[in-house]
């Protein structure tokens, strides 16, 4: 059963009651909300995601709700909570959806230490995955969004999740938050992309969320092995360049970019070393999405 099997009223009632259990890749979330500003945005964007029975193990009990007590009548705000604790200052009520999405990121980054978590986007085609470790502003999400609307499967936009047992990448195909100019870039690039409303003046500027293609969500339990490590950087008007880099440099870039490299002790070292050994490593400078995709398509054998 998926969220879209409910009508919008059932969805809202489920959220405001005991909460709805929604599966995002390897994580089971129970989400509770009493905010129409959240449910109106979440319903269409979450529609393809699987629901799971409440009897299953739940990784994170989260909520985005009105402030507790009298404050709810004074200011219209949205408060994110994990297990009943409120780790962040309240958000404007109109920003409830991005607030919950950021909250989910925080839950994963601070709790999912059974996995090596790289700050990286990931896409897959024909069993071969590209990881894009990058810093904010490097154009990772824009490139990833363009690729998944050009025949690649989304593994994740934010977390490169590496399973310690075998080094496989676990998909986490959540909605992708585009920021500022990237929103219009993707609207122009793929007008058919499903993009939610724009949230103006958030803590990260203007944000809009892209729903991944349904195929990516359907295959969310299908792991992939990394074949390329590509460090992208968008530079206005720059000619495209895909340049091999030394493995030692790639190692350092990946290790320093991981959310929990220090937490996992020597397992991190072994996993990152294995990842770098198994991958061809490049830097990618791009300004034009079509050029970048054409170049990356040529990496994957039989990709057409």
């Amino acid at each position: 059963m998926i969220v879209g099997d409910l009508d919008q009223q059932e969805f809202a009632e489920g959220l405001s009651g005991v909460g709805l259990c929604i599966q995002f890749g390897p994580f089971n979330l129970r989400i509770h909300s009493n905010l129409p500003t959240f449910t109106h945005v979440a319903y269409p964007l979450y529609a393809p995601y699987p629901l799971f029975p409440a009897s299953q193990l739940i990784d994170f009990h989260i909520q985005i709700t009105s402030p507790p007590g009298l404050r709810r009548w004074v200011r219209r705000q949205a408060c994110f909570a994990l297990d009943g604790h409120f780790p962040f200052a309240p958000y404007a009520v109109d920003h409830a959806f991005p607030a919950l999405e950021w909250g989910i990121n925080w839950c994963i980054a601070t709790r999912a230490h059974h996995l090596l978590m790289l700050h990286a986007a990931g896409v897959e085609r024909n069993g071969h995955a590209i990881l894009f470790p990058a810093s904010p502003g490097d154009g990772k999400s824009t490139l990833c969004t363009a690729l998944i609307h050009s025949g690649w499967r989304l593994l994740s936009d934010e977390f490169g999740l590496v399973r310690p047992e075998d080094g496989m990448l676990l998909p986490l195909p959540r909605v992708i938050p585009l920021k500022n100019q990237s929103i219009e870039v993707i609207r122009q690039f793929r007008p058919q992309a499903v993009i939610g409303p724009e949230f103006l003046g958030t803590r990260k500027g203007t944000v809009a969320h892209v729903q991944p293609p349904l195929e990516s969500i359907r295959r969310a339990q299908e792991c992939a092995r990394a074949r390329w490590l590509i460090f992208p950087r968008w530079i206005a008007d720059a000619p495209l360049s895909l340049t091999p880099i030394a493995k030692s440099q790639a190692f350092l870039l990946v290790a320093t970019n991981a959310f929990n490299y220090e937490v996992l002790d020597q397992a991190s070292f072994r996993l990152v070393a294995q990842l770098v050994r198994d991958c061809d490593c490049f830097t990618l400078i791009y300004s034009n999405l079509d050029e970048a995709i054409s170049t990356l398509d040529q990496l994957a054998p039989n990709c057409q």
Binding site: A246, K247, S248, F251, F269, A273, V276
Partner: peptide, 9 residues
């Protein structure tokens, strides 16, 4: 140990 190029990690 992991050796790559002329660097040792």
């Amino acid at each position: 140990w992991q050796k790559w190029d002329d660097l040792y990690l």
